[in-house]
């Protein structure tokens, strides 16, 4: 089961990230991972949270446009070649990575890598087969 990432539309101007995180802080929502991609005029903030439903309803209520996107979160041993091992599996199976970002969590000596791929079902199957530890939606609260 993939994890649901929340993608949020923000304008590229001072204060927008502050305002958005303020909304989350006001509702005691813990951000487990975050990435920001920007263009000249706007950006997309991508976050991983524990309670997706509550977070999206809070954001919508505050007037944000957001969308859920399935992502695959894999545990990567924090050692040289760790990430490469996972990417090799994608490469061998012709799975395309659209974007990825990392977050800490899950204890010492490992990182979590968040992947947006063109086929998350297949990606998960292949990773599991190669004994890569995957994070489920239900694991997010524990991170």
């Amino acid at each position: 089961m993939s994890v649901k990432q929340i993608s949020i539309f923000v304008e590229n101007k001072p204060g927008t990230m502050h305002d958005m995180t303020q909304v989350l802080a006001d509702h005691s929502i813990d951000i487990r991972a975050l990435s920001l991609t920007e263009t000249e005029g706007f950006g997309i903030v991508r976050i991983i949270v524990d309670d997706v439903l509550e977070t999206t309803s809070v954001l919508k209520q505050e007037g944000y446009v957001c969308r859920l996107t399935p992502v695959v979160i894999a545990e990567i041993p924090d050692e040289p070649g760790g990430l490469n091992r996972v990417l090799t599996i994608f490469h061998d199976n012709q799975i395309n990575v659209e974007y990825m970002y990392a977050t800490l969590g899950g204890g010492a000596k490992r990182a979590l890598m968040i992947f947006r791929v063109d086929d998350d079902k297949r990606a998960e199957r292949e990773l599991r087969e190669k004994h890569i530890q995957l994070i489920e939606q239900s694991d997010i609260a524990e991170l």
Partner: peptide, 18 residues
């Protein structure tokens, strides 16, 4: 104004529509 219908997670799609 961005709308829920026009927003996607894909920057390339959004800029293409723009």
């Amino acid at each position: 104004e961005m709308t829920p219908e026009m927003f996607t997670d894909n920057i390339a799609d959004i800029t293409k529509r723009q």
